[in-house]
Measured scan of single mutants.
Amino acid sequence: KFNKERVIAIGEIMRLPNLNSLQVVAFINSLRDDPSQSANLLAEAKKLNDAQAP
């Protein structure tokens, strides 16, 4: 279950337009470290993406 959620979360994070490459890598590394947190990490990535919108 967590592996599928992690793959989906990674794909979504990679498509967030307002994150820089270091932020994307940090979120992906966090997902690798704890796949059970996929939903929480994706939500945090989306919040950061929205906050950094031009």
Rank of each mutant, 00 (worst) to 15 (best):
N3I: 06
A45W: 02
D50I: 10
I8W: 11
V24M: 09
E44C: 08
D33M: 11
S21M: 09
N29T: 07
L19R: 00
S21Q: 10
K1W: 12
L16E: 00
N18C: 04
K1Y: 11
V24W: 02
M14A: 04
Q37L: 12
L22A: 10
A39V: 07
P54G: 11
K4I: 11
S30L: 14
A51N: 07
P54L: 07
A26C: 13
V25T: 14
N18I: 00
A51T: 09
N3R: 03
L19A: 01
L31R: 00
L48R: 04
D33V: 12
D33S: 08
E12L: 13
L42C: 03
E44Y: 10
E5D: 15
R15A: 11
L48H: 02
F27S: 01
N29R: 06
N20F: 10
N49T: 00
S38N: 15
S21R: 12
N20E: 03
E12W: 05
A51V: 11
G11F: 11
A43L: 10
L22T: 13
D50G: 08
R32W: 15
I28T: 04
Q37R: 13
I28E: 03
D33G: 06
S38G: 05
E12G: 06
F2P: 14
A39T: 12
L22E: 12
K46V: 07
I28V: 06
F2C: 12
Q37M: 13
K47M: 07
L19W: 00
K47H: 09
V7F: 14
I10K: 04
R32K: 14
K4E: 15
Q23A: 01
R6C: 15
V7L: 14
R32E: 15
E5R: 03
L16I: 01
K4W: 10
I28F: 04
I10V: 07
K47C: 07
N18V: 01
R6P: 15
S21W: 15
K47N: 08
S38H: 15
V7Y: 15
V24G: 01
L19H: 00
L42F: 03
L42P: 00
I10R: 03
V25Y: 12
N18S: 03
F27Q: 00
A53N: 13
A39C: 11
Q23M: 03
A9P: 02
L41S: 03
L16W: 02
V7M: 13
N3H: 14
K46W: 06
K47Y: 07
N49H: 02
F27T: 00
R6F: 15
P54N: 11
L16K: 00
L22S: 14
R6A: 15
P54R: 06
L48V: 09
N3F: 07
A45C: 02
G11N: 14
R6D: 15
A53T: 12
D33R: 12
E12K: 13
K47V: 08
Q23D: 03
A45H: 01
N20L: 11
I10M: 12
V7W: 15
L19V: 01
I28S: 02
L22P: 05
G11M: 14
N18F: 09
E5A: 06
L41A: 09
S30A: 11
N40C: 08
G11C: 11
P17L: 07
E44F: 12
N29M: 14
D34T: 07
L31N: 00
V25C: 07
M14L: 12
R32H: 13
D34W: 08
S30W: 10
E12T: 10
A39Y: 11
E5S: 04
A26F: 08
N40A: 05
A45P: 00
D50R: 08
N3V: 05
Q52N: 12
L31H: 01
K4T: 14
R15N: 13
F27E: 00
R32D: 15
E44H: 08
F2K: 10
M14R: 08
E5W: 05
A39I: 12
D50S: 05
V24S: 03
N3Q: 06
M14Q: 08
S36N: 06
V25W: 14
L41Y: 11
Q52F: 05
E5C: 08
P54Q: 10
I10N: 02
A45D: 00
F2N: 14
M14D: 01
K1C: 12
A53H: 07
D34I: 04
Q37F: 07
L31C: 03
L16Y: 03
A26P: 01
K47D: 07
V24T: 05
L22M: 13
A26L: 09
A53R: 10
S30C: 07
A43T: 11
P54W: 09
P17N: 06
S36K: 07
Q52S: 04
R15V: 05
R15D: 05
V25Q: 14
